[in-house]
């Protein structure tokens, strides 16, 4: 099992709370003020973004490694 950040762009309103309080500086807002993770390799899955997101737009999900390879 592998953990992975999953964003819901339709729900994200770009408030920037997750970006500011990420301890590893993983997240950023793109040109449309939507969340993305340019440094996802640094993520320690502490869930601070997921728990503080007012829009419930971030989820840390567990995936099978082989499904990652398929993509």
């Amino acid at each position: 099992m592998k953990k992975k950040l999953k964003f819901n762009r339709d729900w994200c309103k770009g408030c920037g709370i997750c970006v500011e309080f990420c301890p590893k500086n993983v997240l950023e807002l793109d040109d449309e003020l939507k969340i993305y993770a340019p440094r996802s390799g640094d993520c320690i899955f502490c869930k601070m973004c997921e728990l503080r997101c007012p829009d419930i737009a971030i989820q840390i999900i567990e995936t099978q490694e082989e499904s990652d390879e398929e993509k």
């Binding site: 339709d10 770009g14 408030c15 920037g16 997101c53 007012p54 829009d55």
Partner: peptide
């Protein structure tokens, strides 16, 4: 969803915590 609350509204965080 998405809910009607403004960007950054604390009510969303409360909703998030309550569900958890």
């Amino acid at each position: 969803m998405p809910h009607i609350w403004c960007p950054g509204c604390g009510h969303g965080i409360v909703l998030n915590s309550l569900v958890r």
